[in-house]
């Protein structure tokens, strides 16, 4: 039910971002969404992409400090208030969102997030009939 997100550790200095992006370009990996969580000294570049397992392997071989993280991806109707409704569902169930970001894909809103309890999150998604995106859906986005 979760999908793989690439998390890349980056020092805050010029050249680190372009190095990772050039590698993905060379491997013909399609970036679907990305965001950077940054501090004064470094950033964590989070990427949803096609073929994350292959991307992970190739980046790692090139010496990039990359990890695969399990995150949830929920599909929402592209209307005001849908994100609030979704987060309310988790909040009411006592789940904490560690981080979250969103993007639009084919007219649908996609909410990416990590929680403090994956098992519980799975139950909540099923019980509330939320539409989730799975790993196999990602490869269709190539």
């Amino acid at each position: 039910m979760t999908i793989n997100q690439l998390s890349i550790f980056m020092e805050n200095r010029s050249g680190t971002l372009i190095k990772a992006l050039e590698l993905m370009k060379k491997s013909k990996i399609q970036i679907i969404a990305s965001t950077i969580a940054d501090t004064a000294e470094y950033g964590i570049y989070r990427i949803i992409c096609s073929e994350p397992t292959r991307a992970y392997k190739e980046l790692k071989e090139a010496g990039v400090a990359v990890a695969l993280s399990d995150v949830f991806a929920i599909e929402l109707d592209d209307e005001p208030g849908r994100a609030a409704d979704a987060v309310r569902t988790f909040s009411d169930a006592g789940l904490s969102i560690t981080y979250m970001y969103s993007f639009l894909l084919n007219g649908k809103g996609i909410l990416i997030f990590r929680t403090n309890d994956n098992e519980h999150a799975r139950e909540v998604i099923i019980l509330n009939n939320l539409k989730f995106i799975s790993e196999s859906d990602l490869s269709q986005w190539k």
């Binding site: 997100q5 998390s7 550790f9 969580a37 940054d38 501090t39 470094y42 964590i44 989070r46 790692k60 010496g63 400090a65 990359v66 990890a67 695969l68 993280s69 399990d70 560690t98 981080y99 990590r114």
Partner: peptide
């Protein structure tokens, strides 16, 4: 220098973990 193996876990993917 962080060890490459450190990144096989998902433990590090938030600034709080690195802090």
């Amino acid at each position: 220098e962080l060890r490459q193996e450190y990144f096989t876990t998902t433990a590090f993917d938030t600034p709080a973990a690195i802090d």
